[in-house]
Amino acid sequence: MSGRKKAPRYGHRPGHRIFHWLIRCFGVGPAYAVLVFVIGYYVFFRPSARRAAGEYLDLTFPGRGRRGRLRLTYRYYYQFGLCLVDQAAAGILGPQKLRLDFPDDPEIRRLDGEGRGLVLITSHVGVWQRAIAVMEFMRRSVYLHLRREAASESMGLAGFEAAAPHVVSPDGFLGGVPELSSALAHGNIVAVMGDRGYGSATCARVEFLGKSAAFPLLPYHLALTTDSDIVVFLTSRAGRMRFRLRAHIVRMTPELRAMDKNEARLLLLRRYVGLLEEHLREHPLAWFNFFDFWAGS
């Protein structure tokens, strides 16, 4: 799925430098304050920014008037800005400054003990980069399926203390799929975005927030073919430099193995979409996927 990105790139180098300087010298507080004006500029003077958020906000908060929609768009981008400031602060002040609450899950410990491959599905919510680092306790290699430029922006934030993840670019021949398959077959962890298909990714259309949207099938196909379990990670901002992480485990059961692979893939995809929708009902201003997600519906 090539898709088309609707949003402009946010900010520019001098602007980023100002934020970095503020964070380094005074902490995140002043950066949050400056954000109030920066977001105002984007929301009121950049129609492309309003368009990029428009469809998601219309589906999530239907029936808003022009003013209500503008207020909502402002709140939405402000939440996005807070996450960006927190992520930047983690990069500048150290990843330990960003607190990620993740309850010790015995089921995840059990997965570790079994030593099978693990497909970690992340989404454009909260600080997904930091969430991946949580799996470091497993002492297995992590393969991150992400464009190199996006990875280089986020890796400094991921907070890996031991080995940094292997970045496998989705661009080029077969989108790095052979590397990911081999990694899973060796019991490693493969982290993929569940809500964005890159390059020529094979997608399926399912209902998402009441409208047909295209989601990549790769995570589920990888899990089914390599007999790996799935963990869906969803994060949400809980306060200043503080995020919560929820993990949903989807085991590869004998029933799934026995199913027709196309049906099993769709079943797993729908389960992921259901989890994402549930998360967004609780945190509706927390999905930062500025992408023509419902294109062609």
Partner: peptide, 11 residues
């Protein structure tokens, strides 16, 4: 064949 088939082929 597409990238999903590549997963099958590797395995």
């Amino acid at each position: 064949l597409d990238s999903l088939d590549a997963v099958e082929l590797v395995v």
